[in-house]
Design a binder for these strands. Sequence first.
RNA 1: GGAUGGGUGGCCGAGUGGUCUAAGGCGGCGGUCUUGAAAACCGCUGUACGGGAAACCGUACCGGGGGUUCGAAUCCCUCCCCAUCCGCCA
Length: 426
Amino acid sequence: MLDRKFVVENLDLVEENCRRRGAKADVRAFAELEAQRKAKQAEVDELNRQANAVSKSIGKAKDAEEREARKNEGRALREQTTAAAAELEQIAAEADAILRTMPNLSHPDAPVGETDESNLELRRGKHEPPKFDFKPLDHVEVAEKLDLIDFEGGAKVAGHGFYFLKNDAVLLELALQRYALEVLLKEGFAPTITPDMARNEILHGTGYIPRGPETQIYSIADTDLSLVATAEITLGGLLSGEILEADRLPIKYCGISHCYRTEAGAGGRAARGLYRVHQFTKVEMFAFTLPDESEAMLDYFCELECRLFDGLGLAYRVVDTATGDLGGPAYRKFDLEAWMPGRGESGEYGEVTSTSNCTDYQARRLGIRSRTGEKGTAFVHTLNGTAIAISRALVALLENYQQADGSVVVPDALRPWVGKDRIAAV
RNA sequence: GGAUGGGUGGCCGAGUGGUCUAAGGCGGCGGUCUUGAAAACCGCUGUACGGGAAACCGUACCGGGGGUUCGAAUCCCUCCCCAUCCGCCA
């Protein structure tokens, strides 16, 4: 969430930012409530002060009679305090509800626009899309011929959007994890395998809404837990409530987790095969940085994503995400879109990774601060980035490396872990 | 899942109803001494919000939430977490 004081002092700026990001937050109403909150807080503080003074005087009272009189005085004050505190809570809750609907500020260079159609292509990877002397199949057909993915089996046991990876697809998944991990370990990321569930409080802190009609999140009945949509949630939550010494920063984690998404409201969008599924595995990067280090870290994350996909020999483009498509927490976001020959009429770019600088938006809610010199603390900045989302990477690999005979060539980078250079029908 | 014991400041740790404005120690910062350093000694050293030009003052915070009381780190309820033992189990 945003800093409440900043919002009050920059009403026009925040309103304009909400407009650009397609968020309907009543910024003016918030400012009004915030003024009321401050006044009520002062009232509660003053009543508390008086009540404390009375309480202290009771211990020093001369006789029983005076003690009784003082007690009555104290009781009356505490009643007033309780009433004022209840009003304060009411006002604060209303103000917070509005504050939570305000998205993060936006990087001045982020393209302004309502949808992903305004996204700005920044550059392309070092590989060209492959040329085929046959009509390339989409990944569902490629996988079908090689018996790599069982969508019907997935639907039978868990419904549409679930699948079994089979045979060499299993090796591909594990190889992709190892490949990504290898690169990230060399870069100094602390590797983790995170919980696949998190408390709803942590979800909120990272900007995910666990309940409601449009939620992307599966919640676990009769508990305070939800299935995570990404390891960003668990990794961000890992240091919640902590004050970090500045010399520990930046802290870089990578985390492997399963990701669960309801995809509510995604009906009609390209949903064939592995592209949009309810469960997949992802290797995620996450960093906590000092405020003035986050922009460089975002570029670094993006560069690592490029390196990973260049290393797989896949063609991609990097786009700067438009304001309307940034979601709540991101200040700036870069996506990698890999070339998918089987997508659309004759191939299209499809999103495979995403990296965001969330500045202090998540850290404020999660209470993650750094010590700044002698006195005081500052909220850290948090960043996340996809190293490899396995399902989307499989789409790209199967479609780009398919051969005329129906087999799929294994890219060099994955051969050590797949143990073969080609996946062919048995 | 059951039993027992715990959760206190950056860290360790004392504290069973009002002088808690949380002892003591460690670490950190400043100073004295010293050519310099170490040691010793002295002082300072939590977070947030509000007020103030500042010094400083006020309020809240002792795992989270609720309760009893004029007053709670302390008593009660509840939840979470940690340790140990038992049960179950990959």
